[in-house]
């Protein structure tokens, strides 16, 4: 099953992300972000706990991705594993696991809220995310 795909966008990076359930949607969004950053990783491992609160599920996903971008930038880390500790439509607490990085091949400035709305189609959740790059 396709996890995400790239959509044509004139200036930035637009992805359509899929998931059979809400958790998988978040997991695939993290995977897509990580793939697009193209980190050159070190061997050293890392883990972080992050908490995000937002007014609805779509906003929660954008805020989650922004937290990952910003934390990764400050700590020079990349995260490819996610464990849910607490997850509602308005609140998220997760444990992220990943690696320290030497550098990123691509820069993602932030995730925008433009068009970011989670929809359920053919039993799958999906959302379009535009990253400012």
């Amino acid at each position: 099953m396709e996890k995400y795909k790239e959509i044509e966008h004139t200036a930035d990076l637009e992805l359509k992300i899929y998931g059979k359930d809400k958790k998988e949607l978040f997991k695939n969004a993290l995977l897509a972000l990580n793939n697009k950053l193209e980190p050159k990783t070190k061997e050293e491992k890392t883990k972080r706990i992050i908490k995000v609160e937002s007014e609805d599920l779509s906003t929660l996903l954008v805020d989650f991705l922004n937290e990952v971008i910003s934390l990764g930038a400050v700590k020079n880390e990349t995260y490819n594993e996610i464990k849910f500790i607490d997850f509602t439509d308005k609140r998220l607490e997760v444990k992220l696991k990943g690696k320290k990085v030497k550098s990123f091949r691509n820069e993602i400035k932030a995730t925008s809220y433009h068009k970011a709305e989670i929809k359920k189609k053919e039993k799958r959740y999906q959302i379009n995310i535009i990253f400012d790059i």
Binding site: S54, E55, S70, A110, S112, Y113, H114, K115
Partner: peptide, 28 residues
């Protein structure tokens, strides 16, 4: 980038307070 991220999130939550409704969240 972080200043923008921080304040866009903040303003999304505050628009209701000022009765602002817009066709796109990113215009917050």
């Amino acid at each position: 980038h972080q200043i923008a991220t921080d304040y866009i999130k903040l303003m999304l939550n505050k628009m209701k307070k000022y009765n602002i409704n817009l066709p796109d969240k990113e215009l917050n």
